[in-house]
């Protein structure tokens, strides 16, 4: 199932971000912000976008296409509107890169899907509570996994994967609840 920029915009709107106000949503924006604000804290030179898209490919179901554009629009949109989020996501992505380098000797984007999955599981992210200032696994759960899941499963395309075209958190109108199942 193809994710679209519109899905990302819908998910952003659901988080209270009016997209008109944040301009073009491309990774280089985040990298600029990286340099300005978060560079000191950042412990890896891999661009944040590369790490996040690579992780999203493991966190999202394989049926989902166009992950790159979707994640870019969503994450950059959030980061532009919320500086504390931007810092958190940049730092946390760098943190995952550190673990990847240590355990697998390569950046996340060069790992197979299976290894990316394994990396997260070894970090303990599956069972970690999402806590923005917690242990590494908890931060990854908060800033990476749950952030990506929230974006996907409050978007119409993500909802449709499960059979709900108007998922909670999405302003999908008042027709869908009245419709019966297709087929």
């Amino acid at each position: 199932m193809e994710l679209t920029r519109r899905d990302a915009l819908a998910a952003l709107a659901g988080g209270g971000i009016a997209v008109g106000s944040v301009g073009a949503l491309a990774w280089d924006r985040l990298d600029e912000m990286d340099d300005a604000d978060a560079a000191d804290e950042k412990s890896s030179s891999v661009p944040t976008g590369e790490t996040l898209v690579a992780l999203a490919e493991a966190v999202y179901p394989s049926a989902v296409e166009n992950v790159g554009e979707f994640v870019e629009t969503y994450v950059v949109g959030r980061a532009s509107a919320r500086p504390e989020y931007e810092r958190g996501v940049v730092e946390t992505a760098a943190l995952v890169e550190e673990y990847a380098a240590e355990w697998f000797g390569a950046p996340v984007s060069e790992l197979s899907r299976e290894d990316r999955d394994e990396l997260l599981r070894q970090m303990g992210v599956e069972t970690a509570d999402p806590i923005p200032d917690g242990r590494p696994a908890q931060r990854v759960r908060y800033y990476v996994v749950n952030e990506l899941q929230y974006a996907l499963y409050t978007s119409p395309t993500g909802g449709k994967l499960v059979g709900i075209e108007n998922p909670q958190g999405h302003a999908g109108g008042t027709d869908s609840y009245r419709r019966g199942p297709k087929r």
Partner: peptide, 13 residues
């Protein structure tokens, strides 16, 4: 679904 996903102990397929 979104609440399930956020609380799940797994991801992907």
């Amino acid at each position: 679904p979104v609440e399930m996903a956020l609380g799940a102990e797994t991801w992907g397929d």
